[in-house]
Design a protein around this nucleic acid. Sequence first.
DNA 1: AGTATGTGGAGGTTTACATTCCGCTTCACT
DNA 2: AGTGAAGCGGAATGTAAACCTCCACATACT
Lengths: 211, 211
Amino acid sequence: MTADPQAPLRADAQRNRDLIIAAARAIFTEHGPEVPMEDIARAAKVGIGTLYRRFPDRDALIRAVAVDSFARLLAEVRAAAVEEPTAWDALVRIMHHSTDLQLTAQLAMLSAKALQILKEDEAVCEQREELLVELERLMVRAQAAGQLRPDVGAGDIAVLIAMALRRPPAKTPEIGRLSTDRCIAIMIDGLRAHPGAPLPGRPLVRDDLRR
Amino acid sequence: MTADPQAPLRADAQRNRDLIIAAARAIFTEHGPEVPMEDIARAAKVGIGTLYRRFPDRDALIRAVAVDSFARLLAEVRAAAVEEPTAWDALVRIMHHSTDLQLTAQLAMLSAKALQILKEDEAVCEQREELLVELERLMVRAQAAGQLRPDVGAGDIAVLIAMALRRPPAKTPEIGRLSTDRCIAIMIDGLRAHPGAPLPGRPLVRDDLRR
DNA sequence: AGTATGTGGAGGTTTACATTCCGCTTCACT
DNA sequence: AGTGAAGCGGAATGTAAACCTCCACATACT
């Protein structure tokens, strides 16, 4: 029932549905996917009943948000790949600026619960695969150009991102943002070609992330 | 009532107390400080009643574990500072090998709840301060020796560590460990002197972490 | 204007966790 | 080896929070 196109929604209902997804996106990004349904309804300025009619349970909502967020991120990645002068610049841009990235990583890698749900969703899995393919393509290009260190795989980047974007509670929001930015910048410097020390083990690749 | 030395515990009681702390340490490290008390009791092979007699509530337990974990970490840091040939090596050793580091970071930076509790504990705050002083000392040495990039502060490292050590759930424990190791190695390379790009903002220092 | 569709949110139900309590066990001391 | 104090386990109870249903009322579409 995630998307049920055979009965087009009434205009107000469609509007509410969008509001709910937007609110869920914001709240999931901030507090993870296990916040009470009521909070989401409140943020969307909608009654709980409405939320439940549109998404019969939390899983459905998570799936819908994930589809949305993955699609946005994919678009962002493709845009960066085309618009930036080099693959490396595209990677840097994505890592630094994407909030969809944050949500996606959170859903796909940090919450065991969400992972479980998404793993069983055909559409999401496909999107995910596309995303990783796109990422790998960028990385190969950046490695060929000698900008990205050769001993990392897409899995490494994914892990790095997932870690970096789990922002710890900070003194103030500004410090929180600053610390995330700096952290990512340090990671990026660690990803440049000709770094100090060879990495342990072997590169993590796409398949290492599948669970 | 965390430590009540006026009535020395019976031998078996003392043993159980130690078991409980050890179990709590393991479980907190793995799953954060909000796991059900019952899980901790089970892991310690002890009845819930016992747990509650020794630690009247979760806060007391968290405090006790924190004191223990901070002390261990401080010892580890000092040992590394003395035993390793350079300050840089000491930093690397600590980042790579310390599980107490993981727990400490988790308690001190990632869980809002734990933070709240610890912030109000005199002893813990002092330990924390000592720890950061020691870290800063190492960093200054490593920067003076030209090994650590000059534009980072102790706060940056603390944030980095807290992020890195929040291990996402992985396909297998081996992959989990590998990904953490690689992630840390990448961060370390990003921390070396003469990296690619200057970091944004200003160094995060000790005080930025106080909340 | 009439009807199908959508809405809000009060409240019953479920769940999960914290905490207490007390009959039985183990220790420590003589 | 006997005895009382200290300790133990875990079933039972309390409690808070989140889930989700339901229905009188509202809104959109034709």
